[in-house]
Design a protein around this nucleic acid. Structure first.
Lengths: 154, 154
DNA sequence: CTGAAAGGGTTCGCTTTCTAAATCCAGAGG
DNA sequence: CCTCTGGATTTAGAAAGCGAACCCTTTCAG
């Protein structure tokens, strides 16, 4: 359980850090719950609302932020015989968050699962064994956590 | 860019979902920024405060939550000639979030980097090429995002 | 031709949380 | 005993969250 060495400050000032920027953008309870639902296929305002049980004001505000940031695309759908309505679908930018949220799911399974088996697991298409979040080198081979080194630019 | 099929609700009710639980716990701007700093080695109250520039009330509240949840361990350190003081170090539970935050860093590098090269990158100890967050099967071989399948229990 | 329904919001007050600044507190050094 | 320092709590005003009610448009039912 290698310990992280003491530092008085982070090596990158937060205002210049892409992790900090990502946190400013999506590091919010409702925003993350919206993305969770969206990755499960939810697209419509009322579906988000009944899934999240959040105030409609908050929902419409967060959807606007996510559309402006490019994570969601607002487009129109039409069920025949019904009027056209907007729906919010994940863009490539949004979909690329999927591995992170799956990783967080598995972290939750381990630490917050209250002893129960995970209600959802992930496999490779066509095979059976579970997959997990990890690091790989350029050749797609796993790198163990203790072998990871951070390199600052410059 | 395979699209996620439409769903009216998520397959797992949020109150029973470990991802939703993880989001409730750490899905908060300041909480995530604290974890970011902690993963860079910050441990002390005033260091967190000058790193984050957040109100001290918020900081002490969030630290309490993280200690209670088991992500941080509060212990005492003592510099000779100074009085003993508490420091907040990551537990195994906290350290195991590292792959997720590194993954989020790399997501931010791609989508929020404003065209500049990433200020921090990650390599395997002893080699040069960059590593990246990904999924692997039981044998440590990479599984591409489009090959990931979710399996519900029961 | 009305009337109601459904989806997607906005408006309105109230409560909670955030924030900044000031204050407190304990122990070490002078 | 006085001050300094790190780790907080208190306080009061600003911002955000919240639930309920309302609005708007189209479509279907009578």
């Amino acid at each position: 359980m290698s310990q992280i060495p003491l530092a008085r400050r982070s090596p990158i000032p937060p205002e210049n850090c892409n992790l900090a920027r990502a946190i400013e953008l999506i590091g919010d309870r409702w925003t993350m719950l919206i993305l969770r639902a969206a990755l499960y296929g939810v697209r419509r305002f009322d579906d988000f609302q009944s899934e999240l049980k959040c105030p409609r004001t908050v929902l419409s505000g967060r959807l606007k932020i996510l559309v402006d940031a490019g994570l969601l695309t607002k487009r129109t759908y039409k069920v025949p015989g019904k009027r056209a309505r907007p729906e919010y679908v994940l863009s490539a930018m949004g979909i690329s968050l999927r591995p992170i949220l799956i990783g967080l799911t598995q972290w939750g399974d381990v630490w917050l699962g209250q002893g129960e088996p995970a209600p959802i697991s992930f496999t490779k298409a066509g095979s059976k064994g579970a997959i997990r979040a990890a690091f790989v080198d350029a050749d797609g081979r796993e790198v163990r956590p203790d072998q990871i080194r951070a390199v600052l630019r410059g």
